[in-house]
Every structure is written in C-alpha cells, then in structure tokens.
C-alpha cells in the first residue's frame, strides 16, 4: 500500500523544547523572555509557510533488501541488516515541510534578521523530525501499526535513514525509485541531497522492541559523536520499565 499524507502546519509544529535544543540551549533550560518571544515569532512564520506532506509505502523484506543495498556502498556491517529481518512491518517514507519555509529563512537572512532566520530554521528541522514521529505512530501513515497496536504486541516502530548507521546516503536513489516522492515535490540530487532541503527519508521498522537494540560499536560509530541511537535504545528500555 502506498499513501500520500498531508497535515496542517499546526499539526506538524514541534515542541518548543525540541527547537531550543537545536538552538544550543541545554535540555530543560528556561529560555529568557527575549528567546521565548523569538521562538513564538518563528513558530508563527512556520505556521504561515509550512506545507507538510509525506509519501509512505509498505515494502516486503525482500524488496527492502534491494533498496537497502542501493549502490552497494553501505558499511560492511550495519545495524539495520540485523534489525530489518526481525521486523513485522516495513515502510519506506519521504516527508517534507515544503519549499516556502526554506525561502522564508533565506529572506530573513537577506533582510538582516539572523536570529529569527536561525530560529525558524530550527523550528523547521524539528518539524521534519516530528513528521517522522507522526508517520511512525501509525495513525496518519496507515501502513504500520498504531502506537496502541504496537504496544499491545510489545512492538516498537523506529525510523532509520540513509546517511546514518552505515546506510550510505547514496541509498536515497533506490529509495526514491521505489517511492516516487516527486509526487509530493521532493527530488534528490546526484549528491543525494533532497530538495526541498527540509525533507527526510527512510524506513519505518515495526517489530518486537528487542530488535531495535544494538551496541553502538560499529566502525562508523567513531565518526558519529552524538550517537542519537543511544537515546533511542534507552527510550525502548525506559518504556518497558527496565533499567
């Protein structure tokens, strides 16, 4: 099944805390009134300009194996090689908030309003992450289990993207060939850059919680200083009350 999903700008608006972390504030920090006002202004611009949409499609394990192989440039060992075979559902996705936000960010830079431009950029980046979460929750995408259904089975849905965890970014091409996201206005350059810039692609992997766990000890982990996988894996344990 393949679906095009659209949202209102408001539905994709990210939490303030997520945006402020992207602006360099420590998690949980209380912003000054000036920063809070700047965030409010950026969010208002986002709501005026964002056009969030996605295309998502179920994919069989066999077909995903081909997509994942891509141009054959993945790392020799990757987590997804072992995660995907244990999945109960797989779905490819591309999501975007559209071109207008990016243009507005540039206009603000050109108009010497760098603080608002940078805040809007962070709002947009956090919104793209939120689209991935919305798709993964299953309600909007319709191609993976809803969160409630997944919990009942002790499953979890997590997204994995080309360019991360050993999945070479050139994998975008095979993903695009399968999904044809041009329908929602997203294209990929030879460099694997997606346009509009504020877009995200990947695979939603739904399956038993344990399949998503892996030790971040692959050779490419050394080049990944932030290692966001740790947080995701910790969240899986916390959800089950594990320590």
């Amino acid at each position: 099944m393949r679906r095009v999903v659209t949202w209102s700008a408001g539905a994709s608006a990210p939490a303030r805390s997520d945006v402020l972390i992207l602006q360099g504030l420590p998690p949980g920090a209380d912003p000054t009134p000036r920063i809070a006002a700047l965030y409010d202004s950026a969010l208002a611009v986002y709501r005026e300009t964002a056009e969030p949409r996605a295309v998502v499609a179920s994919i069989s394990p066999e077909a995903f194996r081909d997509v994942y192989h891509g141009d054959g440039r993945n790392a020799s060992r990757t987590p997804l090689e072992t995660i995907a075979p244990g999945a109960r559902q797989l779905a490819l996705f591309v999501a975007t908030i559209g071109e207008r936000v990016t243009h507005r960010i540039q206009d603000l830079f050109d108009g010497n309003m760098p603080a608002l431009a940078a805040m809007l950029d962070s709002v947009a980046s956090a919104a793209v992450d939120r689209l991935t979460s919305l798709l993964g929750s299953g309600v909007d995408s319709g191609v993976v289990a809803t969160n409630d259904e997944a919990r009942a089975e002790d499953w979890r849905t997590l997204a994995y993207s080309p360019g991360y965890c050993g999945w070479h970014v050139s994998g975008q091409r095979a993903l695009f060939a399968f999904l044809r996201p041009e329908e929602i206005g997203v294209t990929v350059r030879a460099s694997a850059l997606m346009e509009p810039l504020k877009s995200v692609s990947g695979v939603l992997v739904t399956g038993p919680r344990k399949i998503h766990r892996f030790a971040p000890a692959f050779p490419f982990c050394a080049d990944c200083p932030e290692r966001p996988c740790r947080e995701r894996i910790a969240a899986l344990s916390n959800a089950a009350g594990e320590t």
């Binding site: 602006q23 360099g24 000036r34 920063i35 010497n112 760098p114 603080a115 805040m119």
Partner: peptide, 14 residues
C-alpha cells in the same frame, strides 16, 4: 549565552 543571543547582538551591531 546561546545562539539566539549572539544573533540578536549581531543584528544590533549591524
């Protein structure tokens, strides 16, 4: 201070 503070100062500088 953080990035927004720096950029507001940059705007004031301009």
């Amino acid at each position: 201070i953080f990035l927004p503070d720096v950029l507001m100062a940059a705007r004031a500088m301009q």
